[in-house]
Simulated assay, not measured.
Amino acid sequence: MRGVQRRRADLRRHRLVAIRRAGTAERADRVDAVDQRVMGRQVDGANRFAGIRTGSATRSRNGPIVALRGTAATSAPAATGNTVTAVSFTMEFPTTPMAGAALAIVRRSEAEAIVNHSARSFFFAELLAIHEGLHHDSGYDRELLFAATVMHDLGTGALAPGRARFEVEGADLAAEVLAEHRVPQADIDRVWEAIALHTSPGIAERRGLLAYLTAEGSKMDIGFNAPVTASYQAAIHAAYPRLRMVRTLTDAIVDHAARSETAAPIYSMGQQFALERRESGATQLERLAAGLIPWGE
């Protein structure tokens, strides 16, 4: 328990120091309030799915990730039994036909800002997995993580029929892509669940490693767990610029919610965003982007 508390405090301290150095103490206080609510959920969520992980995988306690090679590679120790091996991060997508099809459908149907958000979510999820020592977990699969993170917002695109909430329709579209490439049904189900639950904090992290990383990767792109990405976010953003992502994604979610009553059921993100837009002209996410996200919207 003391280790979890120390990690939570370290994450808050790193963000506060960075923001205060920029001369924005008032915003730092707001970040602290947000982080106290959010970081505890993230750490506790990681612990919740620990029960389904193998004993050979342990979370990294060694602090920041260190550079390994080039400008976009990183390495961190990962425990496998009594042996410690290096785990590498690189800004390269999987090259399998399934991965290519996933990327193609996203590029064909989504706004460029959302495509870039999805790519960044994949890289941020990988960085989190390295940081927490999860790459050697039996539930870790890089290709499935790519499929889930890159296609997690398919429901906001042109191919979504607008009859169900965008998370579900995106999960259905992603499942079709995987089925066409003869991915085993059990893996299709894991990707479907990860996408369907990526806007459900408190649930996603209880549904296994893939769901946890998919949800966290997408949240990291709006600034959560920012210290994990600090050394690499500039290179990632240079390759996949934001292009006012928060506004573009919010517009797409609200537009999808307006397509039918069943597309925005009560308490869904679509319903909540549409309500906030009507009442105040901006969602909480848009206000968060304007005031708190380290790299803006």
Rank of each mutant, 00 (worst) to 15 (best):
G162H: 08
G162C: 12
G162T: 14
R163V: 15
R165C: 02
F166Y: 11
F166I: 07
F166P: 00
E167V: 12
V168G: 02
G170P: 09
G170H: 11
L173V: 01
L173C: 01
A174N: 04
A174L: 06
A174C: 09
A174E: 03
A175G: 03
A175C: 04
E176G: 04
E176R: 12
V177S: 01
V177L: 06
V177C: 06
V177H: 02
L178T: 01
A179P: 00
H181I: 01
H181G: 00
V183I: 10
P184E: 11
Q185R: 10
Q185F: 01
A186C: 00
A186V: 14
D187E: 14
I188E: 05
R190H: 05
R190C: 01
V191G: 08
V191T: 08
W192S: 08
W192V: 09
W192R: 15
E193Y: 06
E193S: 14
A194H: 09
A194F: 12
I195M: 09
I195L: 04
I195F: 09
H198S: 12
H198L: 10
T199V: 12
S200M: 15
S200P: 00
E205T: 06
R206M: 13
R207W: 05
R207L: 05
R207T: 05
L209S: 08
L209K: 10
L209W: 06
L210M: 13
A211S: 15
A211P: 03
Y212N: 12
L213R: 04
L213F: 03
T214C: 07
T214K: 01
A215E: 11
A215P: 00
G217N: 05
K219C: 01
M220K: 00
I222D: 01
I222F: 02
G223V: 08
G223L: 04
N225S: 14
A226W: 09
P227S: 04
P227E: 07
V228R: 07
A230Y: 11
S231Q: 14
S231M: 03
Y232W: 09
Y232E: 13
A235Y: 06
H237K: 10
A239D: 05
Y240F: 13
Y240M: 13
P241Q: 14
P241H: 14
R242G: 03
R242V: 15
R242K: 11
R244S: 10
R244M: 03
M245T: 11
V246I: 15
R247H: 13
R247F: 07
T250M: 05
D251P: 00
A252V: 06
A252C: 04
A252P: 02
V254C: 01
D255L: 08
H256V: 04
A257P: 02
A257Q: 10
A258W: 04
S260K: 07
S260Y: 10
S260G: 03
E261P: 06
T262Y: 10
A263N: 07
A264Q: 11
